[in-house]
């Protein structure tokens, strides 16, 4: 039994029902002889991966679904070795170069070139090129991006690159100018509610009123994946979805919400020490520090008055940047909390 998220994931263009204009455009592109390099960007849970899957399906047919997972060893300069997992079919390869951290340059240089230099051997394949899907393209280092530039141009007859990213900003200009940018907006709350409804109907979940579905959609922050997961979680707890059902927050979100409340209520030194424990706890549960900071900010903002907000936001932007550049996230998280307390108590 698979999760509903996977079970109800559309596998081809005909099944995709959100963002129709975008879907039509993509389908049109895939039927053309010539597919440009693509860069799909949009918030999480907006359907980027799903669309990549649909593109592959359209380009190569069912063969693109027969995938295998393999792990490869690469030379990373000198005697160093580097391991990377890739998902591949006869027609495409899916990699996440950011797995290799700072060494991702080698993945692009070695692996991509190797793929690019081998030709499609299947005579009956619909297209002569292979597709390489690069996940988390916004986490590629500058060196890796630079390495991509000429590869994308030289090997176009054998290779098409499809990149998936949540944010366009870290992707440098030369790469952007070589790809077709495709924006995938998050679905609206109504659209999510509609999808939830159809899933509920298919799974025979008794829904008392649509209001609860809208509530899920709102809590998910227009994230389809999260919304479907929430629905399944609620169904697992109670087979009847009543109007008053509480939409459960993820544990860590509830913790951060409480933390935000505490910070605003008593901005004192002793509280600062207490909050440190919470932050450590969150980090040790592998919640990425940037997400902790953003969630914390968004939870604090509704609790403070408008005059204090600019200072808090500015601090958040500053420390978010430092988390990204630095290596010890806890310092910056704590500095942010201290700054917020300072702003609040000096008023």
């Amino acid at each position: 039994m698979s999760l509903w998220v996977h079970e109800f994931r559309p596998s081809n263009f005909a099944e995709l029902d959100l963002n129709e204009r975008l879907t039509d455009n993509l389908r049109q592109l895939c039927t053309e002889e010539e597919l440009p390099h693509l860069l799909l960007y949009g918030p999480p849970g907006s359907g980027k991966q799903t669309r990549v899957g649909a593109c592959l399906q359209e380009l190569f047919g069912a063969g693109s679904r027969r995938i295998k997972i393999e792990s490869r060893q690469l030379d990373a300069g000198g005697s160093k070795k580097l391991e990377i997992t890739m998902v591949s079919s006869v027609y495409h390869v899916e990699i996440t170069p950011s797995e290799a951290g700072n060494q991702d340059r080698f993945v692009v240089q070695e692996l991509l070139k190797e793929i690019a230099q081998t030709q499609q051997i299947d005579q009956n394949a619909k297209h002569r090129y292979k597709v390489v899907v690069i996940n988390e393209a916004d986490h590629l280092t500058r060196e890796a991006q630079a390495a991509l530039r000429r590869t994308m141009e030289i090997y176009t007859s054998n290779l098409r690159i499809v990149m998936v990213a949540t944010s366009l900003s870290p992707i440098m200009e030369p790469i952007r100018s070589r790809t077709l940018l495709v924006r995938v907006p998050a679905p609206s709350e109504d659209e999510i509610a509609k999808v939830l409804q159809s899933i509920a109907a298919a799974k025979r979940v008794s829904v008392q009123s649509d209001a609860v579905l809208h509530k899920i959609a709102a809590t998910s922050q227009r994230n389809m994946r999260k919304a479907i997961l929430m629905l399944e979680a609620m169904y697992a707890q109670n087979e009847q979805l009543t109007e008053s059902a509480v939409v459960p927050l993820a544990d860590w979100e509830a913790v951060i919400k409480k933390e935000a409340f505490e910070i605003v209520k008593s901005p004192t030194t002793s509280k600062l020490a207490e909050v440190r424990g919470t932050n450590y706890e969150l980090l040790s549960h592998c919640i990425p520090p940037q997400i902790i900071l953003r969630t914390l900010l968004l939870q604090i903002l509704p609790l403070v008055d408008a005059k204090a907000a600019p200072g808090i936001i500015e601090a958040a932007a500053l420390f978010d940047h430092r988390i990204r550049l630095g290596t010890k996230a806890i310092f910056h998280l704590e500095a942010f909390v201290a700054r917020v307390m300072n702003v609040l108590s000096s008023r």
Partner: peptide, 25 residues
């Protein structure tokens, strides 16, 4: 400042929030 932070991979949501509030001020 915002441009630099974005290129370094700063969070888009926080950054935009900061840009707009600063612009307002």
């Amino acid at each position: 400042v915002a441009n630099r932070r974005l290129v370094d991979g700063g969070d888009e949501h926080i950054e935009l929030l900061n840009i707009v509030t600063q612009t307002a001020q």
